Computed example of a mutant assay.
Amino acid sequence: MVQLSEDILHKVIKKRPEISHKGTFGRVVLIGGNQQYGGAIIMSAEACIKSGAGLTTVITAEKNHSALHARLPETMVLAFWETTMIYQVLEQADVILIGPGLGLDKTAITLLKGVLKTQKAQQWLVIDGSAISLFSEYNLSLKFPSQTVFTPHQAEWERLSGLSFIEQTDENNRAQQALIGAKIVLKSHRTTIYDDAVSYYQNPLGNPGMATGGMGDTLAGMITGFLAQFEKGMDTIGAAVYLHSLIGDDLSEKNYVVLPTTISEALPRYMKKYAIERK
Score class of each variant (00 low, 15 high):
N203C: 15
V198L: 10
P152W: 06
Q123I: 04
Y37Q: 12
T192P: 01
Q147W: 08
F165M: 13
M234Q: 08
K63L: 09
S146W: 02
K22Q: 04
E265V: 12
I96P: 01
L205A: 13
E82T: 11
D195T: 07
S164N: 14
P100M: 06
I166G: 14
G99L: 03
F226Q: 07
G216F: 07
E158V: 12
S164V: 11
L251C: 10
I184D: 07
L163G: 13
I31W: 03
I98C: 00
S130R: 03
M85F: 07
K63Y: 06
L219K: 07
G225A: 07
I193P: 00
W157S: 10
L160M: 07
W157M: 14
K14D: 10
L179R: 15
G38I: 02
H189M: 15
G38W: 02
I8V: 15
E231Y: 09
A47L: 03
G233H: 03
Q119E: 10
D196Y: 03
E82H: 13
L186D: 00
D7I: 07
D217N: 14
Y200Q: 14
L72N: 03
D217M: 10
K14S: 14
G23T: 05
E91A: 14
T151H: 09
A228M: 06
L111E: 03
L72E: 01
S146E: 11
I237H: 02
L205T: 10
N173C: 13
V12R: 00
A182Q: 08
T212L: 11
G129A: 13
E6V: 12
E137H: 14
P145R: 14
Y87V: 13
I223F: 05
F150R: 00
D195E: 08
A47Q: 01
T261G: 08
E156A: 14
V28A: 00
N255Q: 12
Q122H: 14
A45C: 00
G114Y: 01
K14Q: 13
P17I: 10
L102Y: 00
